[in-house]
Every structure is written in structure tokens, then in C-alpha cells.
Design a protein around this nucleic acid. Sequence first.
RNA 1: GUGGAUGUAGCUCAGCUGGUUAGAGCGCCAGGUUGUGGCCCUGGAGGCCACGGGUUCGAAUCCCGUCAUUCACCCCA
Length: 455
Amino acid sequence: MLRAPRGTGDVLPSESRKWICLEKVLREISFKYNFEEIRTPVFEHTELFSRTVGESTDIVEKEMYTFEDKGGRSLTLRPEGTAPVARAFLEHSLGQGPLPQKLFYIGPMFRYEKPQAGRYREFHQYGAEILGSPSPYSDVEIIALAVDIAESLGLTGTKLVINSIGCPVCRERYRGDLIKYLSARSDAVCEDCRKRLSKNPLRVLDCKNVSCKAVTSGAPSMLDYLCEDCQKHWEGLRELLLRMGLSYEVDTSLVRGLDYYTKTVFELKWPPLGAQDAVAGGGRYDGLVEALGGKHTPGVGFAMGLERILLAVEKGEKPFREERALDFFVIALGQETRLDGGEKASATRDERIPAAQNAAPGADDDIFRRGFFLVREIRSLGLSCDFDPLRRSLKAQMKQADRLNARYVAILGEEELEKKMVSIRSMKEGWQKEIPLESVRDFIEKEVLGRGNQC
RNA sequence: GUGGAUGUAGCUCAGCUGGUUAGAGCGCCAGGUUGUGGCCCUGGAGGCCACGGGUUCGAAUCCCGUCAUUCACCCCA
């Protein structure tokens, strides 16, 4: 049997309802913060990511889905959303419009990684970006948005972790000293870290290896190297967070894996998730737009892993309900109820269904046609409605209606047809009334509509 | 990429140290009710026991390999 590729998966109806709810919450909160949605392509020129995310990062080095199209272009399925937004910002000169631009996106991302709880090869991210504001107020707005979303979804007890990794100027100074410090102790760190030392020394800081931790605990801290501008920003950020009542933890080993970050970096963690507990992560990227050939345009943003969020929501205080609901189910009853002409129950499904499709039109057709018209009429009133095309027994159809969580059932049989009536039954309240065919519409408008149907 | 665990019906799982017709619950279909759902009862459909090889008189069961799933490391959302 052919299966979905490793690290990918189908979202079946019971799950897709949760996705719809989640996306609705995300959009509502985004609009509340005055962000507008942007949709960018699922693939981009490979160069966009290699230039911005960084050649030596894991993402670019080994996780990208890169391919050549028939025109010989090197393209890559986007592994993250910020660089594409920055590209679109430039391409459409959004910088010429009012600043800052506040944009959010929801969509699939791709990373060739070994799948694990809350980590997939195709995954979905929500992200929000503020372009054109250097103010720490924007940092805090981004963080507040992330926290607001988590709280709205019932995730209590999230942990906000922040750090500053400075700007290219002060980071370079720090980098020099850090390399000096680490080189002197290179035999005490793990093999991976010895490689990182030359490529990306900051990453040694968040190595979990015990001996590396021992070494890095005494290492110089980036926070002591911040230049005046970065220092002011860092202090402004912390003061604002404090005043907003957003509690945080400073973790100088928090180094985000993407090269474009400057100054503020942060993560929002939700510990019950286990190993993959970062539910949102982001930071400031003041050099990104410039690196893509634009004017200097500061930016801040974050991204949220939606599969991970969904996992968390299930474990949290407000899990999504997955109940389906139908307003009406129309049952048409003829003499020959079953379209399969009484095929043995032992027949398999596959054998029964073609029999149903080949049934010859009979005397019952009038009833079924009227039933079908009724379905259309109910739908035209704005209600959801379904019927059984297989002409099963009344009992079977009632059962089906029950399973579909139908609020009402309309029964159209010979008895009703003779009297030109329809039986309407409330599945929840249990009553059943006969209504003249021609006033069904009125009845539904009066009795059914307006009672409300919660989404 | 590294390490561990697991693969039996649509789903969740039994199947003892190898022994012949592979089970349960839920779900699905039908009947008990000549036209009424939920509860109950009865019957039915549905399994190359992940795949390939090996050991054995005999393998779902033991061994090896492959693939998949999963947890952790790495990294990240």
C-alpha cells in the first residue's frame, strides 16, 4: 500500500475541524492587533534562504527540500516564513507605504528532519512580522501577540525566555572573545562543538552536553558586550515587559538557529509538550531587508508551529470540540427501500454499492424525487442538510441521522405523500409533527431558524 | 545523522515458554420492531499476523535484514 511520505500526514475530517477552529482564532487575534494576512509561494529561489537564514545553519546545510525545475532554476520548498515575507515586502515596495507594515501568514513549511513528537517534514506555521519599526514597543507587541494566542488557546503556564544577541558590530567583538575563551578549552568540549567553534561559535552556548555546559557556564556573556544602541534596546524591552506584566526569564544560552536575527531573540515554551516544547520562537532581524538589497528596514517577528500548538491545545485547558452537526436529515421511504433489492447481508460493501447504482426507476421515484427537492429547499434556507442516496431502511436512516448529529429529521413516506404532509422530528427534543408539504418552508423558518446553530 | 521501543481486523489491543480453524472490545452492515435514532440482544462482513529471508516436522510467536511508526539525542516551530 502506498502511504503518505515520511514526516507528512493527512488531516482527516475530525482533525480538520480543529484546524479550522485554530486558524479562526489566529486570524481573529491577528486582526485585533491590526496585522494583515500575506500569502507567499510555497517555493522560492534557493538563494533567498541560503543568503538570509545562513549557509552554516542546519536548515540550509541539510534540511532543505531543494530541486531544479525544468528551466534549470534552483528552487526550495520554504523552510520558514520570514525571509519570503521580507522578499515580498521588497518586491512590492511595501516600504513605500505607511510604516510599520504588520503582516501575518499561515501555511506549510518543509524541513528534511527526522520526524518526532511535534516535528514533521511538512509542518505548518503561523507567523507575524512587523517591518519598519526599530522600537522595543514592537518587540513587546510581537511577544504579547504570541502570549495572547497561547493563552486564548488555553495554554496556561507558558514560559517566556528572552535574550539579546546584539547587532553585527557588538556581536563580532563578542564572537572574537568567545572564540578565544573556547579555543583555550577546546579539548573539554564535545566533538560537535569543536566544529561549531570555527563555524558558529555562538551555538556552542546551547549545547546540552554536560562537559560543554561546564565550559560555557564560565564563558563571557553576550549581554556584557552589547553596544550602546543594543544595550538601550535590551533595557527598554525588559522594562516594557515588566510593566506589561509579562514575566520572562533571561537565558544567555538562547541562540536562535537563523543568521538574520539581531538584538532580541525569544522563545515561548510549554513544558508539558516534552522534548519539543518551544511553541513559538522569534526575534528581531534589523539587517534582513537590507541583506536582500533593500533599504535598511528593522523588523521583528515570530513563528508558531501549528501541529505543536494543536498537540498542546489537546493537553491544555480548552481542547477543541470535534463534534459535527447537521441541521436536517431528509428521509424518503418507498416500498423498495433498499436499492440493492434485498441482497444477502453477506454480500460485501463493494458488491452492494454497484447494485444500488444500477437500480431501475420504479413507482417510488416520486417520493425520492420529492425528498431530494426538500433537501435542496432546506439548503436554500441556509441550513445544512443531507439524505441517504442508498435508500436504506427507515431504521438505518434514523441511525445515520443520529450519527450525523442531525437536529431534525424530515420523513417523507407513502403515508405522508397521500396526505401531502411531511413528518418533522426533533432528534434532541423527541417530538414529531406532521406539516403540510406546502408550508414546510414556513415551518422551518419559524420553528427552526433563529433558534441558532452554534459553530 | 545516532540510539531505544514497537509493527496482529477500519480503530484500541489480547494471543502464556513455537503446536495446526488467529481472538476481544469499539466501529461498520443486517435482523429482533409491517415506518422511527440513542440502550439492549442476535447474526454477518472484514486479517498474505508490515515486507523479505532463515531456523524448525511445524512460526503471528525464535533469529537476521528491509521498511514504517514512535520516543530521545541533534536541531527547531
